[in-house]
Design a protein around this nucleic acid. Structure first.
Length: 810
RNA sequence: GCCGAAGUGGUGGAAUUGGCAGACGCGCCGGACUCAAAAUCCGGUGGUAGCGAUAUCGUGUCGGUUCGAGUCCGACCUUCGGCACCA
């Protein structure tokens, strides 16, 4: 078969007959299959996309043949730094390069032969999409979920922009790999932490990989503890720390502030001013990864000031140290060297006192630093309490004095969304000298991104240098005002795209509530595991926020999730241009066609594992399809003149093979185990050849072939459609139902079981099915060969596993 | 350092609740067809010993549980992924 020509033919016919389109009338039976959309990069569609989209499409087509009204949309996550960095390098405008890349990738995506519902396409960089991204930002703002905050943020020196904590990978900028340092900036933040509790609880109900759920849970990082305040002498102020070990409070020998803590300056005595400033300057240069490195020795600097221990009233020295983070807890911690490894090292280095306040409960070794739970000692009235009791009692005691309370703390930080970049959705806020922060009225959306802008990075937002954009009038007072010069993090765009797909033409609203309630949640979401702590978390947050505003009425965006594995270069390394190990799928498509390539991708790799690329088996898949075609053509041509009509052993055997295949393929596709599904199909084809080499009834074989074509259709859609037509059908194979296993054909009268003696295999035997265990023992024991094996030995015990083995212990 | 996953022939990868390890392929070997090659078809293919039936070893390493372990438990090694002074 000329795959290329056949594929072209069927793509056109499907287009003409609307074969791939979703029918809104059948929404009650909808099945929403969603693959993570692509970033339109300059390297276009690569193997990773194929590895995500081709198997996912097989799943989608299978679901369609199972009777579901499948909605499988596709789009582009089109804002982002690479286009802007590329523009800075080449002078090609981000919009131009992005739209060009999209056009190329759309063509390549169509090559996959996937049943994408192109009518629902979404492109995040177009005004009719980002209008609603801005709208969502405004709703979050109006509901108190967006706020501005001067805070230490990650500053990528290469992109000249702020990036979210969650986007920092190995101390580098996730997008560009540049160095990340810290800088204080006025930032728009989204209050994802308001949803921390529900984001954890909701995971239990989701059909997601356990690993992914665990990772999100750890990322959110709930910890139960308490706040403890250390009053400052001669002042109303007090330093508040968060601790999970309030039971060790009497062992505090110092308190540490983060270098960015707002009180550092005023707490530093003149004597230490110079040293403290130097220390803070150094800390600001270091990346968070450096600061938090376990390899690095802990450093700190005394401020010269003291605070008061809330119970003992003793003077406690106040230090600053970069291992204390401004963004976590209260930005201050108490140092208990006796019962914390890090504090112990710090105290030893700087000669601070080390006082035991916990001993082991059962007399087991408790050398300092002793970090396990135990019993309180050297703590006055609290002596003898267990760690668990002590935490509660001490916090309760402090609470009465107004110096402490129980508190839940989360590791998760609010989502910083301001970017000092050009290629993103403008933040729809106006800053008025009289009225302050004013949201752009919804009727004025979208706030359009201007085309002619100087976006060379120089530390300022490109939009801030564009007068026509920046200068405006205040919607409230009408006076001169300026627009917010920043753009939104692209993760904001992608945090709701799945809500736009089903209603992408809606110009009145981002989506119609009633309609979207019917279409969502996504039934199967397929994409990379690398998005676990960012996109997948943000999407859940936005969904919950919109629900609380009443715009949608479901709790979670993605009911079921699966991650595809990573396809590496043939050298086993991650594919990248710099390593020169990138494989271009187009070369394979033009040689073999997409059906062969799809099938190979699914057969040669484990979907969830991925692995290094090699094309050794590609030719074999091409041959396999030829083999199927030959058999099909022979059968089709002979089906009427070679029918003996007897249903004998040979027919029974092939029927068994067919139904065995059907049963397993159904199961395997549901489990995204495509490689074994293809193996079962190959077995059926082998069985059919074997049958054909005997005295075949071609009429019977024709029926089998027709079933085979349907089984193969989700994997090799064009190929199957072509054979389906040759088999005499006028309508698409995708109008057919996916074959269902006839269990009666799988019933066998005899089954082979293994004979074990003392758990070692000694032989095999055929026994009738349906016998009781005792009957099996009697039967097997008395067969001559087994009698010989057993000899005169006494059988102590016999174990029967029905259908599998019998084990004599002698 | 913490968390998670993985480690199976020459190779990609299979193995329901613990139950015949290596499905299905690739590669290789042999055969058929052919003047020959290609294509196609058939057979073989974990190691070791043996002409052979067969025996024996074998799922990263070492132990354990069990009639029976790739699978469960403990310790360790290696690789990958994620997180990282979380107070």
């Amino acid at each position: 078969m000329d795959h290329i020509a056949v594929e072209k033919k069927w793509k056109q016919i499907w287009l003409d007959t609307n074969e791939d389109k979703f029918d809104p009338e059948k929404v009650d039976n909808k099945y929403y299959v969603l693959e993570m959309f692509s970033y339109p990069s300059g390297s276009n569609l690569h193997l990773g996309h194929w590895f995500n989209y081709a198997p996912a499409d097989t799943f989608a087509r299978y679901k369609k043949m199972c009777g579901k009204e499948v909605f499988q949309p596709m789009g582009f996550d089109a804002f982002g730094l690479p286009a802007e960095n590329y523009a800075i390098k080449t002078g090609i405008h981000p919009q131009d390069s992005t739209l060009k890349n999209i056009a190329t990738m759309e063509r390549q995506l169509k090559d996959i032969g996937a049943m994408f519902n192109w009518d629902s396409e979404v492109i995040t960089c177009l005004p009719d999409y980002y209008k609603w991204t801005q709208w969502i930002f405004l709703q979050l703002y109006k509901h108190g979920l967006a706020y501005r905050k001067e805070s230490p943020v990650n500053w990528c020196t290469s992109c000249n922009t702020v990036i979210a904590n969650e986007q920092v990978v190995d101390g580098k900028c996730e997008r560009c790999g540049g160095e990340v340092t810290h800088k204080n900036m006025m930032q728009w933040c989204l209050k994802i932490t308001d949803y921390a509790e529900e984001l954890i609880d909701g995971l239990d109900k989701l059909d997601w990989p356990e690993k992914t759920k665990t990772m999100q849970k750890n990322w959110i990082g709930k910890s139960l503890g308490g706040e403890v305040s250390f009053p400052l002498p001669d002042s109303d102020k007090k330093i508040t720390v968060f601790t999970t070990r309030a039971d060790t409070l009497m062992g505090v020998s110092y308190v540490v502030l983060a270098p960015e803590h707002p009180w550092v300056k005023e707490l530093t005595t003149p004597e230490y001013a110079q040293a403290v400033k130097k220390y803070c300057d150094e800390a600001a240069k270091a990346t968070e990864i450096d600061r938090l490195s376990t390899v690095k020795e802990k450093t700190g600097q005394f401020t010269g000031s003291y605070c008061i221990h809330p119970i003992s009233g003793k003077k406690i020295p106040i230090w600053i140290a970069d291992y204390c983070l401004a963004g976590y807890g209260t930005g201050a911690v108490m140092g208990v060297p006796s019962h914390d490894d890090r504090d112990f090292a710090f105290a030893t280095k700087y000669g601070l006192p080390i006082q035991r306040v916990i001993k082991s409960a059962d007399g087991s070794p408790d050398d300092l630093p002793y970090t396990a739970y135990g019993v309180i000692c050297n703590s006055g009235e609290f002596d003898g309490l267990t760690t668990a009791d002590g935490k509660k009692k001490i916090l309760a005691f402090l609470n009465e004095k107004g110096l402490g309370c129980e508190r839940v703390n989360y590791r998760l930080r609010d989502w910083s969304v301001s970017r000092q970049r050009y290629w993103g959705a403008p933040i729809p806020i106006i800053h008025c000298p009289h009225c302050g922060t004013v949201p752009v009225p919804e009727k004025d959306l979208p706030v359009k991104l201007p085309y002619n802008v100087n976006f060379t990075p120089d530390g300022k937002s490109p939009l801030g240098k564009c007068k026509e954009f920046l200068e405006t009038t205040c919607p409230i007072c009408g006076e001169k005002a300026t627009r917010d010069p920043d753009t939104l993090d692209t993760f904001v765009c992608s945090s709701w795209y799945f809500l736009r797909y089903p209603d992408n033409k809606n110009s009145e609203k981002p989506f119609d509530t009633e309609w979207i309630d019917k279409m969502l949640p996504v039934d199967k979401y397929i994409g990379g595991a690398e998005h676990t702590c960012m996109h997948l978390l943000y999407s859940r947050f936005v969904t919950k926020a919109l629900r609380d505003m009443g715009y949608i009425h479901f709790d979670e965006p993605f009911t079921s999730l699966i991650h595809q594995g990573l396809i590496l270069g043939s050298d086993g390394e991650k594919m990248s241009k710099s390593k020169g190990n990138v494989v271009n799928p187009d070369d394979y498509i033009s040689k073999y066609g997409s059906d062969v390539f799809r099938l190979y991708i699914m057969f040669g790799f484990s979907f969830t594992d991925g692995g290094p690329w090699n094309d050794d088996g590609l030719k074999a898949i091409d041959k396999f399809l030829d083999r199927v075609e030959r058999l099909a053509d022979t059968t089709l041509s002979k089906r009427n003149d070679c029918a003996h009509g007897n249903y004998g052993d040979a027919e029974r055997e092939l029927d068994y093979a067919l139904n065995y295949c059907i049963k397993n393929v159904n199961n395997d596709i549901e489990n995204f185990s495509f490689n074994t599904a293809v193996a079962r199909i190959m077995e059926l084809v082998n069985a059919a050849y074997k049958y054909e080499s005997g005295n075949p009834d071609y009429k019977f074989l024709y029926k089998v072939i027709c079933e085979l074509i349907k089984i193969m259709a989700p994997f090799v859609p064009h190929f199957a459609e072509e054979l389906h037509q040759r088999a005499g059908f006028a309508t698409s194979v995708f109008q057919e139902s996916f074959p269902v296993c006839d269990e009666s054909k799988l019933v066998k009268s005899q089954v082979e079981i293994a004979i074990q003696i003392n758990s070692k295999i000694r032989g095999k035997t055929l026994i009738p099915t349906g016998l009781s265990n005792d009957e099996i023992i009697e039967l097997v024991k008395n067969t001559p060969s087994v009698k010989t094996l057993l000899g005169d030995n006494i059988i102590k015990k016999t174990i029967v596993i029905p259908g599998r083995l019998i084990n004599f212990i002698i």
